[in-house]
Simulated assay, not measured.
Amino acid sequence: MTVPPAALVTTDSPSAPIRVLICEDQALVRTGYVTIFSAQPDMTVVGEAADGRAAIRAAEELRPDVVVMDIRMPLLDGIEATRHLAGPGSAGRAKILVVTTFNVDEYVYEALRAGASGFLLKDTPPGELVEGVRTVARGDSLLSPAVTRALIGTYADRVRPATPAFPPERERLKVLSPREHEVLKLISRGLSNAEIAAELVLSAETVKTYVSRILAKLDLRDRVQAVVLAYRAGVADGSA
Rank of each mutant, 00 (worst) to 15 (best):
E24I: 05
F37N: 02
L143D: 03
K217F: 02
P74W: 06
R83L: 05
A137F: 03
F166Q: 13
R179H: 11
T206I: 11
A54Y: 02
A198R: 15
P161V: 10
I196N: 02
G139Y: 05
L21N: 05
S38P: 04
S90A: 15
T100K: 03
E110I: 08
I187R: 02
P167T: 07
K122R: 13
P5R: 13
R63S: 12
A27H: 14
P161T: 13
L142A: 05
A233I: 08
T10P: 01
R53P: 01
G52P: 06
A54W: 00
A94Y: 02
L75T: 07
V29Y: 05
A216N: 10
D105L: 07
A91E: 14
G52V: 01
T10C: 12
Y210P: 00
E205A: 15
H181L: 13
A156K: 15
P167I: 04
L62G: 06
N103A: 15
F119K: 00
S192P: 11
L184H: 02
V29R: 07
S188I: 04
G153S: 13
L176M: 10
V46I: 14
P88W: 10
I56Q: 03
Y109F: 15
G47S: 10
D77G: 01
A94C: 11
G139C: 09
V159K: 06
V108N: 00
V235T: 09
R170L: 13
S90Q: 07
G47R: 04
T135I: 10
A216Y: 02
R158I: 07
M69S: 01
P4H: 05
C23S: 09
A54E: 11
G132M: 01
D42E: 12
T2M: 10
L8N: 12
T124W: 00
A16P: 01
Y210K: 02
S203R: 13
E48T: 15
V108A: 02
T209A: 14
E110D: 15
L215Q: 07
S90H: 10
S144Y: 06
R172Y: 09
H84A: 12
A58F: 05
V136Q: 02
A194R: 15
V235A: 03
L97A: 04
P164Y: 10
V183T: 04
G92I: 09
G87C: 10
